[in-house]
């Protein structure tokens, strides 16, 4: 399998606090990858480095053989990296359809004068984009909510709308920051199936941050454990589960000793 993303010795420091510490990380095409770790382990910071929000202090990130460290988020969206957020960040006062259309922004060509005078080419482009947005909303299960303000949707629907918006950018790599946070077991189960479907039907590579171990262990092709910004374990779900360093990081040394007895 080919490697789509490679982080080489990536560090991100905030003053003297090293949030991500010389991390090497690869993502294979068409796979589901999870990053887990205690609070403050540097997971979201790593997300923000990969998506261009932070420039790595040292090291570099390579996406499809291209060095992307230092690129702005919108530039990375253009070349195929999309994300959702830990706390939902929709465009609240826009409709569901408009939220998805923003995801298509970089693929549409109309300029200022095209927007004002609307020649046939612009009309066609807009009509096609509106239709495609409708299809995407249908795909994530939001058919019938196209014209509703994003803020008026129930929580679970808002999460799905965020994914639809990210899919609208036509990514190759999709980063999901705690996609099942705040969901009940049924909704969580739906989300697991949905994430698999994204990988299989849309040929996506997916990187997850997730606290729900059931989710992580069910869907991941690879699990990586971070603690204090460093990678302490990596492998298939069952391997990681047995790793002593992981148990120590989560439960402490005493717990590990008790388990051994």
């Amino acid at each position: 399998m080919s490697i789509i993303l490679e982080a080489q010795g990536v560090s991100k420091a905030f003053g003297r606090l090293v949030a991500v510490d010389t991390l090497d990380y690869t993502i294979e095409a068409n796979s589901i990858n999870s990053i887990i770790g205690p609070n403050g382990a540097g997971k979201t910071t790593f997300f923000n480095v990969v998506t261009g929000y932070y420039k790595p202090t040292t090291g570099k990130v390579v996406f499809n053989q291209r060095n992307i460290s230092g690129s702005r988020p919108n530039q990375l969206t253009r070349i195929g990296i999309a994300r959702t957020f830990q706390t939902i960040r929709l465009f609240n006062n826009l409709t569901a359809r408009e939220n998805v259309l923003i995801g298509m922004h970089h693929r549409l060509k109309s300029g200022v004068f095209g927007d004002i005078f609307r020649p046939p080419a612009v009309r066609r482009e807009e009509a096609k984009a509106h239709e495609e947005a409708g299809q995407l909303l249908d795909y994530v299960g939001l058919k019938g909510y196209e014209e509703h303000a994003a803020k008026s949707l129930p929580y679970g629907h808002q999460r799905r709308l965020e994914i639809a918006r990210a899919l609208a950018t036509q990514p190759q790599l999709l980063l999901l920051d705690e996609p099942t946070a705040g969901m009940n077991p049924n909704e969580t189960q739906d989300m697991i199936l949905f994430i698999r479907k994204l990988r299989d039907e849309r040929n996506l590579s997916i990187l997850l941050i997730e606290h729900d171990m059931k989710v992580v262990m069910t869907i991941s092709d690879k699990v990586t454990v971070l603690d204090y910004g460093k990678k302490i374990s990596e492998g298939q779900p069952d391997e990681v589960q047995k790793d002593e360093r992981v148990i120590e990081a989560y439960l402490g040394r005493r717990a590990l000793e008790m388990l051994k007895k």
Binding site: T51, Y53, R72, P73, N74, T77, R78, A82, R83, F85, R89, L90, F91, N92, N93, L94, E98, L101, I102, G103, H105, H106, L108, S110, G111, V112, D115, I116, F117, R118, E126, R165, A166, A168, T169
Partner: peptide, 29 residues
């Protein structure tokens, strides 16, 4: 009126609602 309901108008509103999120969705702020 035309701009309000166009590619650029949507991008403006996205920036107004959440500039960071708009940046992540491919809108150059």
């Amino acid at each position: 009126i035309r701009l309000n309901n166009s590619r650029l108008g949507r991008a403006w509103k996205a920036i107004r609602e959440d500039e960071t999120a708009a940046d992540f969705m491919g809108v150059d702020p």
